[in-house]
Design a protein around this nucleic acid. Sequence first.
DNA 1: TGAAGTGGCATCCTCTTGA
DNA 2: TCAAGAGGATGCCACTTCA
Lengths: 235, 235
Amino acid sequence: MPGNMSKEDAPSRGASLTFTIDHILNLKQRGGQELYASKERRGKGCTEDLQAWDVRRRRDSTSEETAQTKTAARREDRGENTPPPTACASPGAAAASEQKDAEPKVQVKKKTRTIFSKRQIFQLEATFDMKRYLSSSERACLANSLQLTETQVKIWFQNRRNKLKRQLTTDMEGPAPAEHLSEAGKNVQLPGFYKDSSLLGGCLLPMQFPVVYPSPAPYVFFSNTGKYFGLLGAE
Amino acid sequence: MPGNMSKEDAPSRGASLTFTIDHILNLKQRGGQELYASKERRGKGCTEDLQAWDVRRRRDSTSEETAQTKTAARREDRGENTPPPTACASPGAAAASEQKDAEPKVQVKKKTRTIFSKRQIFQLEATFDMKRYLSSSERACLANSLQLTETQVKIWFQNRRNKLKRQLTTDMEGPAPAEHLSEAGKNVQLPGFYKDSSLLGGCLLPMQFPVVYPSPAPYVFFSNTGKYFGLLGAE
DNA sequence: TGAAGTGGCATCCTCTTGA
DNA sequence: TCAAGAGGATGCCACTTCA
């Protein structure tokens, strides 16, 4: 669980309306992250971009961005070390956080539930309809166009995959167990024919099969969810 | 560091002759692990095979594979593993020495240095010459054909990549910093034209460019290392 | 010299929680 | 319901060890 996932938690950014102190504290870090953008160190076997293999020197720098999406953030947000960017400036940081209100740790730390906007859900669904997994660059791009953090996009896809899997395993034991997931799923990255997809807000994505969008009709149907999304008035 | 990498450590298996108590202790786990073989769940954005997305229940089996590059194959194809037929066994030697004495924990835990055979190095080099990264299925296949553990193959490639990078960065700051690594590197897995490669002991590998092997001449030259490998008497 | 060890970080998955 | 949190697994990289 150390380097797990919750790194850049910074929940909502713009889109969602709910937030707690934690969120506020995390906000700043998000911005910086994108700047470095060295992401994608990991995609080892992929085709993807990642051409540079940046020869970064020390690991300490890692914190900031390094890899993809989240990175570093986690550690501090849970307390431990390196006080969150924000105020951390002063060495006394740790102390500061504590001092705030006597027992900061003791607080319950309410769990917030971000509610994505229709537009966000729509685009996420549409993208998911094309591919079940996103490369870090695609994720970054999508997140950027949706005003969400990459972590949110990642988590959304994770939960979405889970949901689809659950649906498939439950309401039908019949044909194809869960192939639905792998099929269009694992993004087939064929370097070469990337096409500008309006779904990803201009991000380059290998077009699998065009999703009706924008469509002449005011509604779009997503095969997976079986839901219709109104294109009008979608926030 | 929890879930880091040391997982299937099982050091030498067959090829190497040295090992310590630790190794012995680890042996058992190795087997089990491969059985589940879940590896390859990771490759997100790649192309690869991975068609199935088996709906495995618990995490113990975790395995799965999912996405891109590596994925899928692994689990079943390896099936497990079964320890390599060979002789890994002989061992007695080292093992004996360690375990013998009473305080096993207290011991210094001598670090052993396995020496791969010429044949193994040759095949590893040849494979590396084709691609810098292996998918888990390829790794499993190669490991199996070389009588090495997958971890050994993985580590070898890791160290090899590092070595190449070092060489490139040092003896020439000139052109292309480290592109050499990315180039043929990130295996460009284009599902479709897999070709049976004798280099991987019959494993399916996307052929990038043929490496002279077997060759009419008794020696083979590896562009990366700049070394020649004699094909005769290579253990 | 080079196979391993160590530590850090990232992604994925499964299960669980709580607004 | 569903975005997140938590925990476990595996991979890669940078460095370091030490036969």
